[in-house]
């Protein structure tokens, strides 16, 4: 198959340059042009926008108070009155699902941001500079790696338990903190190995030979070529973090009623899963959609930043 793989190579730069031959182009602008034409990108962006707006201003989607229980209509099937039906307490499921987005999105987005920032910095330092720094970062990640994310979350949250009076944002903050602390090592490791693969390439050496500063080499040569796996894994992680939040809430050590979240809702629904599956269905569906949307976005972005995939 060697010859087949050289086919593309021997192609005489035949692709048309496109309409803007005279403008300077950068990777970012090319990536944007590519993204604009990708339906998956638009689907995922619409979904994510929807969930983010839902998290910021849930009132836009419903004027039913998620805390208003109509006990006599508990377990009602979906209908005109309550679109998604009512749960075992008689809460409106639609309203609670909309309000529940906030916890998931906050935890997902902020945990991912924190892990990516810490992980990238640590990974690049370890991979690019090597030596003592590398040993230190590697051993620290080893230690954190030994503790599974969820176990770490459970340990932390049960050591510092919440009660009814703990403010909502403090609980969310605690979850973000613990997920970030246990989540960054995987990004750091990935980034480190990815940097180690990119570093020996001749284009990095060529930049050194030209007298480029380490910062410039990292910024314009190492990072862009080492980032792809991190983008993919961090979007997957975002889903994992959302699920972890749901799990902690489900276990009763994350958010607890009266706070609403998809995890709390799923937890509550389990009691009646055999007889009234719709109570479980809607929060789970939203949870899955949110996770899926972020993963699709990650895929689309990764492809757009790889000129070879065009």
């Amino acid at each position: 198959m060697t010859e087949a793989s050289t086919i593309a190579v021997s192609a005489e730069a035949g692709q048309p340059v496109g309409g803007q031959a005279d403008e300077g182009r950068s990777l970012a602008s090319d990536a944007w042009r590519q993204l604009k034409g990708n339906p998956i990108f638009w689907v995922s962006v619409s979904l994510i926008t929807l969930f983010v707006v839902m998290a910021l201003v849930p009132q836009l989607f419903t004027n039913v108070d998620p805390g208003a229980a109509v006990l006599k209509e508990a377990r009602a099937e979906p209908g005109a009155d309550a679109w998604f039906g009512r749960d075992i307490q008689g809460y409106d499921i639609y309203s609670r699902t909309v309000y529940g987005a906030r916890a998931s999105i906050l935890v997902g987005v902020f945990s991912t941001l924190a892990t990516v920032v810490i992980g990238l910095v640590m990974g690049v330092l370890a991979g690019y500079y090597g030596g003592f720094l590398d040993t230190l970062v590697s051993r620290v990640t080893d230690i954190f790696f030994a503790i599974p994310l969820l176990l770490g979350g459970i340990l932390f949250m049960s050591t510092f338990p919440n009660d009814q009076n703990t403010p909502y944002l403090v609980v969310v903050g605690k979850v973000v903190l613990v997920l970030s602390v246990f989540g960054w090592p995987s990004i750091a490791r990935l980034m480190r190995s990815s940097v180690l693969q990119v570093k020996p390439n001749d284009y990095v050496q060529a930049a050194r030979a030209l007298g480029a500063s380490p910062w410039r080499i990292i910024r314009s040569h190492v990072m862009p070529n080492a980032l792809a796996p991190v983008i993919v894994v961090s979007t997957i992680n975002l889903g994992v973090f959302i699920t972890a939040e749901a799990t902690l809430s489900f276990l009763g050590i994350g958010l607890t009623p009266p706070a609403v979240s998809w995890g709390v809702a799923i937890s509550d629904a389990l009691v009646a899963v055999r007889t009234y599956p719709h109570i479980l269905l809607f929060p789970s569906l939203f949870l899955s959609l949110a996770v899926l949307a972020f993963i699709m976005l990650g895929d689309a972005v990764r492809d757009a930043f790889d000129p070879k995939s065009r």
Partner: peptide, 11 residues
Amino acid sequence: ESGSGKSVTAQ
């Protein structure tokens, strides 16, 4: 040269 088909012939 590469792409001439010589290896494909062998395969």
